[in-house]
């Protein structure tokens, strides 16, 4: 068993063995964040660039903390997509960054496939921190880590993912990730939010939230974006909350030990009621905690670890 990937681009390109390696290392990394001195020298002398073309608080902070706890030098660059279009092409920008010899470039971009394009062009490792509607592998890995930690396993569990599947890279990455690790994934939401052919990822689809959650071990709610009303995906937040939101009443049909997850940021009172988000089944903040551990594991594997053993 080894890990030889240069890039972390999506869940599709990770094998079940590779996912297990990442989760095992993440489990060990978690302990570092509990120490009084939260820093190890593992990536000392390595340079990590966070290159975010889309707003992000959680993911960017999480990667940045992960890099710092491993002693890598990290810096963050934000470009609004408009300045990118008007000025330098993305390829030129990234090749300029590459010329300064970073070890890892972590990229978030609104256009699906952009990290893949850059990974083909540059020698530095590329970690996808979310590309358009396509993939968000570090989110999926932290979700897998959190579920495995809570349930002791992933295989055989039933995972319900509910909301705007069409526009969600989290839904895609988790559909692939959880299915690959042996879980059964059901996706639910109004038909306007279920993309054509999603069943090809090995998941099932329901238009009824109660059906989807009744025997689920994990319920993952997705953020509803208000601007999707313009795309006619749903009439009002009020109606969405009533038919597709998770509230205490709806939760009475769920399993007793069900876990409630959300990749954040949450819309209280829309896709998830406050008392559920803050309630006993919610592990939303534990997801965030584990996010740092998973990202430490990813940085370690691409920039330190076995892959770079010869050059260290």
């Amino acid at each position: 068993m080894g890990f030889a990937k240069k890039d972390i681009l999506d869940m599709e390109s990770l094998s079940a063995d590779e996912i297990t390696i990442i989760l095992d290392i993440a489990d060990r990394m978690k302990e570092i964040s509990k120490r009084p001195i939260k820093k190890v020298p593992t990536l000392r002398g390595k340079t990590v660039i966070l290159f975010f073309h889309e707003p992000s608080t959680r993911t960017r902070t999480s990667f940045e903390i992960a890099a710092k706890r491993l002693s890598a030098d990290s810096l963050s660059i934000n470009f609004s997509s408009s300045s990118m279009v008007k000025q330098e092409t993305l390829i030129d920008t990234v090749q300029n960054l590459e010329a300064m010899s970073p070890d890892v470039i972590i990229i978030r971009h609104a256009a699906s496939g952009t990290p893949h394009m850059l990974a083909r062009l540059i020698k530095s490792s590329v970690i996808n921190a979310g590309d358009g509607m396509h993939a968000h592998p570090s989110q999926s890995l932290l979700d897998l880590m959190t579920v495995r930690e809570k349930k002791g396993k992933i295989s055989g569990l039933r995972i319900a993912i509910i909301g705007d599947i069409s526009h969600s890279r989290v839904a895609r990455s988790n559909s692939i990730g959880f299915t690959k690790m042996g879980a059964n994934v059901v996706l639910a939401g109004p038909p306007t939010m279920i993309p054509k052919g999603i069943e090809n990822l090995g998941v099932s689809v329901s238009y009824n939230v109660d059906d989807a959650i009744c025997d689920a071990d994990v319920i993952m709610m997705l953020r509803i974006q208000k601007e999707r009303q313009k795309d006619f995906l749903f009439p009002t937040e009020r109606e969405y909350a009533r038919y597709y939101g998770l509230n205490r009443k709806r939760l009475t049909n769920a399993k007793r030990e069900v876990l409630i997850m959300h990749p954040g940021p949450i819309n209280r009172g829309v896709e998830i009621a406050s008392d559920v988000a803050d309630g006993p089944y919610s592990i939303i903040l534990e997801q965030v905690t584990n996010g740092v551990a998973v990202r430490m594991a990813l940085l370690y594997l691409v920039a330190g670890g076995a892959r770079n053993a010869d050059t260290n």
Partner: peptide, 9 residues
């Protein structure tokens, strides 16, 4: 179709 869905396009 399924390909666009998988690719997130």
């Amino acid at each position: 179709g399924a390909l666009a869905t998988r690719m997130g396009l």
